[in-house]
Amino acid sequence: MNKWLHYNGFSYKQPKGVPHKFDEAKQLAFIEAYEALKASCGTDESIVFIDAVHPTLSTKTSHGWIRTGQDKVIETTGNRSRLNIIGALNLSDIGATIIHDYESINSESIVRFSVS
């Protein structure tokens, strides 16, 4: 069977997972805005990225027979976990990353979160 699958243009590989809400146009717009922001910052200014995360049980991609030269895309999803984390990352100083966990992530916990 393996020989037949190879002969007929299949290869055994892992499908590629993409976020289910991925929008390439929005991502490119963000990159352009980010590059403009970086160019406008002074040497004593930092750009800090802040986000909240809820660790999830995500889709696990495996391997399967997929026609050679083609990719199989599987949307990834997950379930909510009880751990809620807010973090801030300064790309100029990765070692100074700030992380706090909260009972829930809402406007109050975002206000309580401090990056100073």
Rank of each mutant, 00 (worst) to 15 (best):
Q27K: 05
T77I: 10
K60H: 07
K72S: 05
S109R: 07
G17M: 09
L57T: 11
W65M: 02
G42I: 04
I85K: 03
D23E: 12
I94P: 15
R82T: 06
G69R: 03
G95M: 08
Q70Y: 03
G95P: 05
S114A: 08
P55S: 08
H63V: 00
E103M: 08
A88L: 05
S11A: 14
E75V: 12
L5C: 13
D101C: 14
I105H: 09
E35F: 03
R112K: 14
A29V: 02
H63A: 03
E35K: 14
F22M: 15
I99H: 14
N79S: 11
S104Y: 11
H20S: 15
H63N: 04
Y102K: 04
K21I: 06
Y34P: 02
T56Q: 13
V18I: 15
D93A: 06
Q27E: 04
Y34H: 12
I98L: 13
G87D: 00
T61F: 01
L28S: 08
F22Q: 15
R112E: 15
K21D: 11
H6A: 05
I98Y: 14
K26V: 00
A33Q: 11
I94N: 13
K72W: 00
N106Q: 12
T97P: 05
L57K: 14
A52K: 04
L89C: 02
V53K: 13
L83D: 06
D101M: 13
I99C: 12
I31C: 04
E103G: 06
H54G: 00
I94R: 10
Y102S: 05
A96L: 11
S81M: 02
G42E: 14
I50F: 03
S46M: 02
N79M: 10
Q70N: 09
H20N: 15
H20K: 15
A96W: 07
V111Q: 14
K38V: 04
M1N: 12
A52W: 07
S104F: 09
K16P: 02
G9R: 07
K72H: 04
G17H: 04
L37C: 14
P19A: 11
V48T: 04
I50L: 12
F30R: 12
I105R: 09
Q27P: 01
A36T: 08
N106F: 08
M1G: 13
H20A: 15
S58I: 05
H20M: 11
K72Y: 00
V111K: 15
Y102G: 00
A33N: 06
G64C: 03
V18A: 08
G9C: 10
P15I: 02
D93P: 00
D51Y: 07
V18W: 03
A36W: 01
